[in-house]
Write a protein that binds this DNA or RNA. Structure first.
Lengths: 155, 155
DNA sequence: TCAAGATACTTTAGGCCTAATCTATTCGAG
DNA sequence: CTCGAATAGATTAGGCCTAAAGTATCTTGA
């Protein structure tokens, strides 16, 4: 049972598309979360944050992390704090602006992330292995359209 | 800025597809959540739960709601309790099994949901209005494939 | 019959997330 | 230079969500 099958309020096209999109994302996301927990005793938000820092070895400020991850600043604080306590990231003071920090992966953080990223990609590849190259490409293109029209549409 | 643009750990096909899927869902979900809050002072989980009850006028047991919504039982308790307090749903005792309740929309709940559902569908239709009928159909089909292969793939 | 296990639901502890508010610092117009 | 506005970040209150453990009830099989 899932929300899409369950929730046929009506037969309308756009709504059905949205529900299916939501269901697909949820199916994949759940597995990734469960596996991150089982194998690495970590969470998706922590992984996502570390993946941003991985891309920016010089570090990111809290508000940059907030924008990249599309979450509120308070939330970033709440994820960085325990990562710092675990020794995976560090806050380096920013001489130019005493209000700001620069958050970076530590050596241990880089080591841990490299391993997790490699494994996580294997999960995704495996999960989507049933799709042909053509289906991949077509879906990627159409989702690009969704992204485009959604960002254009209103508020 | 969004997670997909931001997070190009590498160039691999499946991972990029997953990130884009995630981004699209998030874009739409955020708007729906924000609008439900602004216009109806409610939340997506509450809306989803009510939409299940709308489909089953005779009511659903807590564990049925749990399965339909794909969330834990404890979570269902946490959503039903305040809805009940607000007079939108009611717990009817189940004579056949004194452990169970049957949760139903109240008259007020039906009235509120009908209005919200109508409006929410308008938002989705509007948000996806930029897609052609053909794109809709193709995307729906491909997401069906994702659902299929994902559910088939392992654990 | 009746005890062991299963089932329905709730509770608890803990993490994620937001909006709103707070503190400290910087910027910028006069 | 200085004061008000903007900005960086942290904190708080509150809702969602999970896993695990707890309570009450039902079922089943010896």
């Amino acid at each position: 049972m899932d929300r899409e099958t369950a929730s046929r309020i009506d037969d309308h096209r756009a709504l059905r598309l949205w529900l299916r999109l939501f269901t697909c994302t949820q199916l994949i996301e759940r597995r990734v979360r469960a596996r991150l927990r089982e194998r690495f005793d970590t969470t998706l938000p922590r992984f996502d944050l570390m993946s941003q820092l991985w891309r920016y070895p010089e570090g990111l400020k809290m508000n940059e992390l907030s924008r990249h991850l599309m979450v509120t600043g308070g939330n970033v604080t709440g994820i960085v704090d325990p990562l710092e306590k675990d020794g995976l990231v560090e806050r380096a003071s920013e001489p130019a602006d005493r209000r700001a920090y620069r958050v970076r992966l530590t050596r241990a953080g880089r080591k841990a992330f490299a391993e997790m990223a490699r494994t996580q990609e294997e999960w995704i590849v495996e999960l989507l292995a049933g799709l042909s190259r053509k289906e991949h490409a077509e879906l990627y293109k159409l989702l690009g359209r969704v992204k485009q029209v959604t960002m254009e549409a209103g508020s």
